[in-house]
Design a protein around this nucleic acid. Structure first.
Lengths: 205, 205, 205, 205
DNA sequence: TATGAATGAGCTTTCATTCAT
DNA sequence: CATGAATGAAAGCTCATTCAT
């Protein structure tokens, strides 16, 4: 009974399907995507999907979780520990730019999450997804607090407001990157530098 | 042949329908919304929709245009001319906060636009929508350039980057407002002050 | 607003569909019947079924109720009031033989009810159906009690047992009628006479 | 080559599967039962079913045959030979009551046969099933004829009609037993006595 | 102009059957 | 022999769109 092997193979196939799902969902959104297309993209029969996922809802939820897990895992890998808090924030920006620049689809699916919010009636899986999103937010809050203590960020401003602004700037830059894709080459390092400068110094004279 | 009256009446009914559509689309998103629901919300028969709109696609597109037009119209009304550029930017922030706080649905439909991006295959109507979005962007760019000349905004930073950050901050604050709705009362004036301070001075020490 | 007409027309179409459903369900049973077939039999599109019935379950339930209502209605019409109880019982037998002989399909659907018992998880509609069935049973019990008082049926035997036997004989004769259909002509009057004789006198010497 | 052993083992497993099938089919009916459930009930893999039965149709047919064979076998065992015909009939009644009271599932599957009638397109297996049913009928006919000769049953009534009534009474009593299960304890001996009395003496005064 | 009954293409989901292991 | 992953045909159901009234 080579059970561990079987489990592993099954998990691998699940991933294969989720990658196909990611591709299609991110191109067309949730509702307009037919499971036929995902099956075709994955090179399997439609019925096979149901051996790995309970239903369409489960498939998108799992896929979203998969993306967020991947994002988190790679972020942890990409960012060294024990950096000064502000530098860690800078690394986050850089990482996000690089990650989404390379994973076109991940950003679209990220937007899908937002819209999915409307559709879904708060499944437990959806709540887990929100939790993942909040994790990053909380981590950034911690960093900002640390940076305040270290004298790098002003203390007369609510931490949550700061993080909100930070996330807003980063996400909008990524958004524009996709929207105007092709205009110029998008240089993650330069953009990061710009964002941090803007974020720390402000645009005022 | 009282043509003008007829045209006006027709236009009025179109608006009535679009308001119903706005309500339903913003609650459920595009695909999951059945035209039945919109017809019911508008108090008309399903077939009647097709007298005013070519198809479902046309209905959502028109509704989105309607929303953006309304936004633009009210913004023009709300913001006095001949203010210093930076103050105009501040008025924009305040207006956006007030507008979306009052028009819950308009924000959701705004997100729908993003996702709609995925759905639609770049209809001409969709492009008009994008154009509307760009109008505001361009206006803000002008303001920033003016503010640079007036010595209120630093000149060593690309105007587009500045506007991008500005929009990102504003939109994210609104996003959080809806996400955490109910937490505290959302005070548009205070939030505006905070955003402008953050935007102009930065968060660094 | 000719509402009554509309309601009537709608009711008429419902009946039309139920008659088609009756035909197909009685031929193939519940599960194996595809709604496509019923739609085709009724000469309408599949989707139209859903304008008149909530789902497949509702369609069979309604059809069964329709059959039982029809049976009841016709039985009431066919059997004169104020007959001696035993004669009324005889009329019931005759009616059942004639009714099912003419309405081939009604018997098969009647059997479907039995099997439906297994499938269904006791919907409220199903319970109403059972209630209909019990009505006839109760009526027969009343008749037997009356006949006892009138000195036509022995009093040393439980009424329910008598009715049970009565129904058993009648239904089995009908069953055989369909099973051996074609053998000889089935003569309802003669069979009725036989059944009553057997029922009243027994087969013993 | 221990062939006989193998054959026996195979036969034993067939029976195991049929018992599982009996359980599930009798609970849910033919079509709604998934082979998955039967495999699970039997503790084997789905594919294994196909090593013992050609297809689903073959499985139900074989199971039904198995039930009827079992019924027949046990009846033969339960009923002594050389009894007076009328007493043999009484023994049949008693046996049926006891058998079905103990084998709840067998009655439900018996009903399934009826409905199966509708489903099946008269497979040869189905015909064999009918033949089994007819065997009992014929046996009862013989008994009645004998009883007539022995002066226990009147001769002015068609044998087939008598048997039909007999079966009808018996089956309906069993039917009621299941339908009102739980009401009172069902006493096979008392019920048998009642049925025979009613059958022989009739209900008339 | 307005209606809403009717349509049927297209969706999600199930499940009998097959076959490589 | 036994398995259970994979298949894909077929089912129930939805809904954008049409059209007779």
């Amino acid at each position: 009974m080579p059970r561990t092997e079987d489990v592993e193979r099954k998990e691998q196939k699940r991933r294969l399907i989720m990658q196909a799902a990611l591709k299609v969902f991110s191109k067309k959104g949730y509702s307009p995507t037919a499971l036929d297309e995902i099956a075709q993209e994955a090179g399997i029969a439609k019925g096979t999907l149901y051996l790995y996922f309970k239903d369409k809802e489960d498939l998108i939820s799992s896929t979203l979780m998969y993306v967020l897990d991947d994002l988190k895992y790679r972020m942890i890998e990409a960012i060294p520990e024990n950096l000064p808090a502000v530098e860690t924030l800078e690394r986050i920006v850089l990482f996000m730019f690089q990650y989404f620049a390379e994973n076109n689809e991940f950003y679209n699916i990220y937007l899908t999450i937002l819209n999915y919010n409307l559709v879904s009636n708060y499944t437990s899986l959806f709540e887990r997804m929100i939790a993942r999103k909040k994790e990053l937010f909380d981590f950034e809050c911690q960093l900002v607090e640390e940076a305040k203590k270290q004298g790098h960020i002003r203390e007369d401003m609510a931490t949550m407001d700061i993080v909100m602004a930070f996330d807003g700037i980063v996400m909008n830059v990524i958004d524009q990157m996709f929207f105007h894709k092709g205009d110029d080459a998008f240089d993650p390092h330069k953009k990061t530098e710009m964002v941090m400068q803007l974020f720390l110094e402000g645009v005022g004279v």
